[in-house]
Each structure stands twice: as structure tokens, then as C-alpha cells.
Computed example of a mutant assay.
Amino acid sequence: MAKKSRTKARNAARSTPAEPGAVGPRQPCPCGSGKRYKACHGAPGGAVAAFVARPFEGLPGECDLVALRELVPAGTAPLTLKQDADREVLLCTLLPMAAPAMVRESGAIWLGLQVQHGFGDPSRDLGAVLEKAVAAAEAGESGIIGLTSDPGEGPRLQDLVADAPLPVTVHEGFDYWVADVDDTEGLAGALDQANEAAAPTARLTEVEAAYWTHVGSKEHLRWVMPEPEDALLTALARLHVAGKDVLVPGSRFVGMFRAHGLLTPVWDLPVGTGAEALEAPAAQFGADLAAALADESDLSSEERSARSGLANRQVTLRQ
């Protein structure tokens, strides 16, 4: 019994942070790598890159980048390089085998957002992969470009791409993987499997970075917003109390999650709503939200209570 007690106590000590707010060695590393902290940023001589809470800040398409990385199954957006504007670069939600990048036979570069690595700053990771892909393309090479270790200091995505809008295309599946390939027989199985896992998704056109999706038996609207968290929570509380957060009859604002430093409010929708029916209500909500953000008056007691409830209904996907 004593041996079991000592083992239990030792395991608990290993799993529990030494100080409030610290990360325990067996807990997931906050960089998002999926590894335990002791095997990632907590490893002696291991990953030491600084964790960046808002990695895509400053990019015009920041909210859409977060959505493409965390929400959208199949989506693409062209990028323009600062130093090589004629180079075709396509940002993709997901590439085959979750590859960080691919250089196509044509010399075009495909850059993946949903990858298996994580070294503290996704923007720096993307910059490192993009640099490797450009070098390979210039050398006439093609194939998968990987990133297997911390890239260290260097340019981030913001340093390499032009300051321009991000025109997002949401696809029904991953057929774009083989759009420029003649022989797809060997890829058919992987493509079918990927397509089956892709939930129907659409980007609204009347507002920025709002995505409708149909997952299982439910429909949702998930809207990535750039406003500072405190101000956004206050504005959402005002709208909730005023009854202005109901997009369509039967819809319900259920809370929000935090990813890469931004909040994403989420609505549950009646099945059969679809994306088109949300366009006008979302535009109206956007206007109401702007007015609520500009309101500097004190919150009422009901609004304070609503704000507290909203703050407690947040889930962090990626800090």
C-alpha cells in the first residue's frame, strides 16, 4: 500500500505545475504541438522558441487565416510574395499527409496551414517552410517540403507576403489536390477518405471571416472577430441583453472559443438554415456590433451579468 501511495504521489507531482499558472511537465505544451510540455518547450535544450499568442497579427486576412487553420476543412487562398510577385503561391487549409508545403511540377508552391508540427509561432513556421519551398522551386525540384525541427529566428509570413487582401475560396472537398494531375488513380483512396471527413462549409460574403458549417446533425455559424477581447465581450453582452444576437428564428448564440489570440463567437442554427439565409442577418448583426463597440456607457447590472456569463463560456483552442 505504501509503495502504491508513493507512486501515486510521485505521478501527481510530475503532472501538477509547481506554481499557479505554470505548465506541468505532463500537460500539453501551450505551443499547440500536441506534445507534452516536458517533450517540447519544457525539454532541456529542446524547443525554446518564444510562444506567440497572436501569430497572424498585422496581416490583412488575419481572421480568415485563423479560420482556415482551425475551422475550414477545404479552403485555399492565393498569396503574393514581396520579392517574387510572379511566383504562384497557394495557401491551403490541408495538404496530403498534412504536409507543410508542396512544390508542384509547374513550380507552383502550395503552403499548408493544418500541420502536425508546432514550434511556438505558426507564422514563423510558415515563413521557414515557404523559404525552403521557394529555394526548391528555384532549383527545379518538386515534392513535399517538411519542417521537422524548430526553424529558429527568421522571417515570418508577414515579412514574406505582400500586404494585400486574402481572397478565400472554400471547396466542397479536396479535389483541388489533383486538379493539375493527369494520373489520379493512386490518390483515389486518400482523396475519397479526405472528402468524406470534410464537413460542408461556406464563407459568408456580406461580412468578414464568418463561416457556416453543417456538422453531423447540426448547423453552426462561426465568426472570427479581430476586436480586443474585453471590448468584444462587453459589446456582445449589450447585444445579448437587447435581444440582438439572434440571427434567424430558432438560432442561439452559444458562446465562443479563442484561437491564436482572437475570439470566435458561435451560433447554433436550425437544420436547413444554410449559408444564404444568414447573409442579411449577419450584416445587420455586424452593424449592431459596431454600434455596441462604440458605446462607452457603463454596463447595466443585467449586462454585467451577461458579460460574466459569456466570459465563462469560452474555450481556448489555440492561445
Rank of each mutant, 00 (worst) to 15 (best):
A290R: 14
A259W: 01
T273F: 10
G286C: 11
V271C: 00
A292S: 11
S251Q: 09
L262D: 02
L278R: 11
S251F: 12
V266K: 01
F253T: 12
L263E: 00
A290I: 04
A287T: 08
P249W: 00
T273A: 06
A291F: 05
L278C: 11
V266L: 06
A280Y: 01
V271P: 01
G255Y: 03
R258I: 02
A277H: 07
E279M: 04
L299Y: 10
T273K: 08
P270N: 03
F285R: 09
F285N: 13
G286N: 15
L289Y: 15
A292P: 14
L262F: 00
S297I: 00
A282G: 13
W267R: 06
H260D: 11
L262P: 01
A292L: 08
L299P: 14
Q284D: 14
M256W: 05
A275M: 04
V248M: 03
A277R: 14
L263H: 00
P265V: 08
A282C: 15
A287I: 02
G286S: 14
A280Q: 13
F285Q: 13
E296C: 00
A287S: 13
A280R: 12
P265F: 01
F253C: 08
F257M: 03
E276V: 11
P270H: 07
G272A: 09
L299C: 11
V248K: 06
P249G: 00
W267K: 03
L289K: 13
P281G: 04
P265K: 02
G255I: 07
F285E: 11
F285A: 13
P281K: 10
F285P: 15
R258F: 09
L289E: 14
Q284R: 13
D288N: 11
F253V: 08
G274I: 04
L263R: 02
E296K: 10
D298E: 12
P265A: 00
L278M: 12
L263Q: 00
L262T: 01
A275N: 06
W267H: 08
T264N: 06
F253A: 14
A259S: 15
D288S: 12
H260I: 00
A292R: 11
A294Y: 02
L289S: 10
